[in-house]
Every structure is written in structure tokens, then in C-alpha cells.
Lab assay of single mutants.
Amino acid sequence: GHYRIRINGREFEIRGISEEEIRHLEEALRNGADEKILKEIVDRLRG
């Protein structure tokens, strides 16, 4: 998958993330885990 997200007015492209991972992120966001989720995304993109 290849997705664009906007955070604090800046747009980011996220590549190589699966539909299942996105559902997991959405679930966590609904549970209020904003900073933790951003850290997970950044860590994943770093490799």
C-alpha cells in the first residue's frame, strides 16, 4: 500500500504498509494513542 497522511499541516507519504496495519493504527487512534502511533509509524519507516 501507498498512502498520504497529513500531520500538523505537513503531508507525508507512507509506503509499504498493509491494510491490516492500517486497521490496527485506526483502532489505536480511536483509543487515543496519538503520540505512540506516530512513533510506531516513524520507527517503521526508519526500517
Rank of each mutant, 00 (worst) to 15 (best):
H2K: 04
H2L: 04
H2I: 14
Y3H: 14
Y3L: 15
R4T: 12
I5Y: 01
I5C: 15
I5H: 00
I5N: 01
R6C: 15
R6H: 08
R6L: 14
R6I: 15
R6S: 09
I7R: 00
N8A: 07
N8G: 14
N8Y: 03
N8Q: 04
N8S: 04
G9T: 01
G9W: 01
G9A: 01
G9K: 01
R10I: 15
R10Y: 14
R10K: 15
E11F: 06
E11S: 04
E11K: 01
E13A: 02
E13F: 05
I14A: 01
I14E: 00
I14K: 00
G16H: 12
I17Y: 02
I17M: 06
S18V: 03
S18L: 04
E19P: 12
E19S: 10
E20V: 09
E20D: 09
E20S: 11
E21S: 08
E21A: 09
E21F: 06
R23Q: 12
R23M: 12
H24W: 14
H24L: 13
L25C: 03
L25P: 00
L25K: 00
E26H: 05
E26W: 05
E27M: 09
E27T: 12
E27I: 07
A28D: 02
A28R: 06
A28T: 11
L29R: 03
R30E: 07
R30I: 09
R30S: 11
N31H: 09
N31Q: 09
G32K: 05
G32C: 08
G32A: 06
G32L: 07
G32E: 04
A33M: 13
D34L: 14
D34M: 12
E35I: 12
E35D: 13
I37L: 13
I37R: 08
L38W: 07
L38N: 01
L38Y: 03
K39H: 13
K39Y: 14
E40K: 08
E40G: 11
E40R: 06
I41A: 04
I41G: 01
I41E: 02
V42L: 10
V42Y: 08
D43N: 07
D43Q: 07
D43K: 08
R44Q: 11
R44C: 08
R44I: 10
L45V: 09
L45Y: 07
L45N: 04
L45S: 05
L45D: 03
R46D: 10
R46I: 15
G47S: 12
G47I: 14
